[in-house]
Amino acid sequence: MKDVYPLAAVLLLQAGYNTIVVMLGAAALGAATGIVGVFAMLRRRALIADAVAHATLPGVALGFITAVALGFSGRSLPFLLTGAAITAILAALSIQWVANRTRLTEDTAIASVLATFFALGIVLLTVIQTLKTGGQAGLDIYLLGATAGMLREEAITLAVFSLIVAAIVAALFKELTLISFDADYARAHGFPVRLLDFAILALVLAVVVIGLRVVGLILIVALLITPPAAARFWTDHTGRMTMISAAIGAFSAYFGAAISAISPDTPTGAVIVLVAFSILLLSVFFGAARGIVVRGIGARRVRATP
């Protein structure tokens, strides 16, 4: 923390215009992952999200190779993200296939798909590193994330996509809550549970792919898991929990991007995750609804007035 003053300046939006846009873009992403993460967690899809995130690596690598082969820059974002989305979808389908069609349990399906896809990505990356073309170093940021060198347009795209994700969740909020709480009941009353599950998975895929650039594919899952887990300690309402989770996600990403902006060697994803986890620990103790401190006081009060 040798750079406290610059950090304060950056946090208070006194850095350059570009930095501010990037930080706000990251915050929008953090909010989107916080929102989607609530349902990923409540519907028990958190670890699938981890596998899907790791499975973007071979897609990023194939996107790079395709772009280079077609004469584009290897860092061309559309190629990389399309590739990422394709292999992530393949991984999600593979997990479903393994869990439904073989005797392997879901956790084994998730772990083996994660390992195989990620390994394939790593093999492709090692291949790329020996290709005689530029821009290989640019791929590193997809592993652990970086906001340094991020363009204003990228940040704005990030924010727009995040808004779309938030709007979709808002539109389906009742139904997503219902299937997460009681899927049998929802099915019995004609709610399209499979379709809604698919929507959750699609939203997870979307934020993972959008978030690769900032957080990196190894740690993006933390932005889906940690903010909702922290938010749960503050409220017993799904709606409020979603808003709090969005706020925690946004704050963590904003903070991480700010630190990354003043020390370019810092992997943005790692800082974001550390901030989010610190908030989780604070919430565990001081959360207003389920925090350990509040629960302790509540228990004593109940005992005092029988």
């Binding site: 190894i218 740690l219 899952v221 995750v273 550390l274």
Partner: peptide
Amino acid sequence: GSVFTVMF
């Protein structure tokens, strides 16, 4: 999930 990501 939150612990293994934060440790990493």
